[in-house]
Amino acid sequence: MKPSPFEYVRPRDLAEALAAIAQDPDDSKILAGGQSLIPMMNFRLARPARLVDVNRVPGLAGLAADGDRVRVGTLTRHHAMERTPLPGPLGDLLRRAAAHVGHLPIRTRGTFGGSIAHCDAASEWCLVARLLDAEMTVRSQARGTRVIPAADFFQAVFTTAMAPDEILTSIALPALDEHYRTGIAEFARRAGDFAIVAATAAVRVEDGLVTEARICLGGVAEVPLRSAAAERVLLGARWSPELVTAAAEAAAADCDPPGDAHGDPAYRRDLVRALIPRALGLDVRR
């Protein structure tokens, strides 16, 4: 459980970081919170020859309003998200999602952008990003800045649209008006574990009608999955608990989850059915 040897680089600013990673992109890794990378290195499942530690690069952390969006710096720690004073349905969602990420000593180190770059199908932040169609800003020394929408960003397990020489710098989320109902519900075996299945929702209800519906599921596919079926059921319909149940049914029927030691596909579908209503604050029992 000791990592293989590597060279350690600690750039002082983004330009230095970009230059460092550009030298040998294929054998280098960005070190953010280290809460996913270091366990993998301890198990020797990851063995980068060089680590570029961005923890002391200024300007990469924090939340800032950016027009009708909120821009989250990649190095914003889970713990800071948990305590963000951001008002409204987006702030609620971020705080509630953060509280599900691991435990306090993980959250003090682990970062929002690190989770997104790591691309675990059950990661709360990946779910939130896909739910809200976040836009990821990435940079490289060679090609400068590009913006990747969430729909294209998450490609497969631990695989994103970023090139090895690119650094994720910030994530833009839409500021949600007061008509949104947002939430997250997940099922994990123990407190703080990665979810077996997680559901996030952002549904806009105005005058009793659903004007926008977003449902995103974790743990049912290689990457966070927007449930088109559930969203179809919701959109334009009159808001009611029964509607949500119907949407959950549709989502469960529509997804094709994997099976493993924690649950077979049928069980995961059951969880989808149970969790979508809970994500929207409905305490459904039967």
Binding site: F43, R189, R190, A191, G192, D193, F194, A261
Partner: peptide, 16 residues
């Protein structure tokens, strides 16, 4: 053996 870490083998925490 599939369960070789504390992510797969699950001793309870105080929450359980």
């Amino acid at each position: 053996l599939v369960t070789t870490s504390l992510m797969d083998y699950l001793p309870p925490t105080i929450a359980e």
